[in-house]
């Protein structure tokens, strides 16, 4: 099941919503020791102070304090982030707002957004959680390209500016936060679990696989549901009825698993499923986990076509 992962995005939003309260009355140093709420500046300071980390909390505080001070004092270079703002009830359409943030070599775009949220405008809304490219919450359009902002570094963009917009193809709830319901419905729709038939075996039963059986689907199981592939797919952006890259790759992940006894032919062999794909290939290019959804779809086209002309062939 992939839902816990996908839901983490929603959690991220909830966490965002709760952050405003979190900050009041809490000092910078307090936040350093609280990994999830670490702000960009403190994150960089923490990096610098890592050597001292083992020597007890007192040391951390001192180093952090010193570094924090230093960052604020010595940073003369800044980079402009052009960030989409959409405040329902206030804006009739999204607008861009520019913020100047410190241009730090080791900052990702997400660090810049957190700097804005912590130092410049606490009302900016965006999703994030793990900061290490595994939760799939922080996908945004960076200079027109769908990226995980936690893994997209300032160094890539020279002096900027960097334009940060919500993922294309989804309704915008607020600022950089998009609606994920349609995506989650699509994931659920392909029955992303091992379907078994026959008598239920005891829970202790092992279902051993050979390395080749694992290799057959492993690549497609690496998806983190970040939705970058949907945002990159012109077919999905033009027509949201299209089942889309991640869901089809996820279906293939189970279709190709030797333990799965289900058959997803009827949900995949449709005009709005695999046959909607025109093989743009952009889903594969933007995938941060090298899942290669385009390949998953083309392979299922071959499977579905073969089964259509040879009705007795199973796969």
């Amino acid at each position: 099941m992939t839902e816990p992962d996908a839901v983490s995005g929603v959690d991220g939003a909830a966490k965002q919503a709760g952050r405003g309260a979190n900050e009041e009355g809490e000092g910078t140093i307090r936040r350093v020791t609280e990994p999830d709420a670490v702000s960009g500046v403190d994150g960089a300071a923490k990096q610098a102070g890592r050597g001292a980390n083992e020597e007890g909390e007192g040391t951390i505080r001192r180093v952090t304090e010193a570094k924090h001070h230093e960052v604020r004092q010595t940073t003369t270079r800044t980079i402009t982030l052009e960030v989409t703002r959409y405040r329902p009830g206030q804006d009739s359409a999204p607008v861009l707002e520019s913020f100047d943030v410190p241009l730090m070599d080791d900052w990702a775009v997400l660090d810049g957004l957190n700097y804005i949220k912590d130092q410049l405008d606490g009302t900016l809304s965006f999703r994030w959680s793990c900061r290490m490219g595994i939760c799939g919450s922080c996908g945004m359009n960076v200079n027109g390209e769908p990226r995980l902002t936690c893994g997209t570094f300032f160094t890539e963009f020279g002096d900027g500016p960097i334009r940060i917009e919500p993922l294309k193809g989804f309704p915008i709830i607020r600022d950089l936060v998009v609606e994920v319901d349609d995506f989650l419905d699509k994931l659920r729709h392909v029955k992303p679990w091992l379907i078994r038939e026959g008598e239920e075996l005891p829970l202790t039963t092992e279902h051993a696989q050979t390395p080749a059986q694992l290799e057959a689907y492993k690549q497609y199981s690496m998806c983190i549901n970040c939705m970058l592939c949907y945002s990159a797919c012109p077919v999905y952006v033009l027509d949201p009825d299209f089942l889309g890259p991640a869901a089809i790759a996820l279906a293939q992940r189970y279709e190709l698993d030797s333990r799965d006894m289900g058959d997803r032919f009827d949900m995949l062999n449709l005009d709005e499923a695999v046959w909607g794909c025109t093989f743009v290939g952009e889903c594969t290019k933007v995938c941060p986990k090298h899942v290669d959804p385009a390949e998953a779809i083309q392979r299922y086209k071959v499977t579905a076509a073969m089964r259509s002309i040879l009705p007795w062939s199973r796969r």
Binding site: D266, N269, L270, D271, A304, A305, R307, S308, I309
Partner: peptide, 14 residues
Amino acid sequence: MSRRRTAEPYLWLL
């Protein structure tokens, strides 16, 4: 589940 017919597999093979 009702099986919906689609001509796409044949068109795609051509």
